[in-house]
C-alpha cells in the first residue's frame, strides 16, 4: 500500500488543474492506497464554501469535496500561510480540513511514496 499525496496549488475554474486534481482522487479511490491531499497557494479557493459555477456552465466542486473521504482520501491539509494570505479562515471551507504550517506540510510530503501535483 503506497502513501500517495495530491498537492493542489492552482486556482479553481481558471484552468483545469483543480478539477483534474479532484477527479484523480476519485480514480485512485478504487485502489488500496493511503491517500491524502494538500491545498496550498491559490488552490485554497477550491475548498471555499458558496461556489456557484452555474453561470460558467461547468460542474463545481461542492458536490465532490464531501465524498473525498468515502473514496479513501481522509486527510485534507491546508497550508496556513496560503490561507491567511488570501484572507480565508478555516470556517470558509466546505469540508473539514487540517490547517498546517510550512514545516508540517514539508514533513508530510517527505513521508509520501508518491506525490502528484496539480
Amino acid at each position: 500500500m503506497a502513501k500517495i499525496m495530491f498537492v493542489n496549488r492552482n486556482a479553481p475554474h481558471g484552468t483545469i488543474y483543480a478539477w483534474e486534481g479532484l477527479e484523480v482522487v476519485l480514480i485512485f479511490g478504487a485502489y488500496e492506497n493511503e491517500l491524502s491531499a494538500v491545498y496550498m497557494d491559490d488552490a485554497v479557493f477550491s475548498l471555499k464554501k458558496g461556489q456557484d459555477t452555474s453561470a460558467l456552465g461547468i460542474k463545481g466542486f461542492l458536490q465532490t469535496l464531501p465524498v473525498l473521504e468515502d473514496y479513501g482520501c481522509e486527510k485534507i491539509y491546508v497550508d496556513k500561510e496560503s490561507m491567511e494570505k488570501r484572507g480565508l479562515k478555516v470556517d470558509d471551507f466546505a469540508i473539514p480540513v487540517e490547517v498546517m504550517d510550512s514545516a508540517g506540510i514539508g514533513k508530510i510530503m517527505e513521508e509520501q511514496d508518491v506525490i502528484l501535483p496539480f
Binding site: R9, M40, D41, D79, E81, S82, S102, I105, G106, K107, M109, E110
Partner: peptide, 14 residues
C-alpha cells in the same frame, strides 16, 4: 509563487 512556496516548504538539505 512556485519557487517561493517550494523554498518555504522544502525540508533542510532537500
Amino acid at each position: 509563487s512556485s519557487l517561493e512556496s517550494c523554498i518555504r516548504v522544502a525540508q533542510k538539505n532537500a
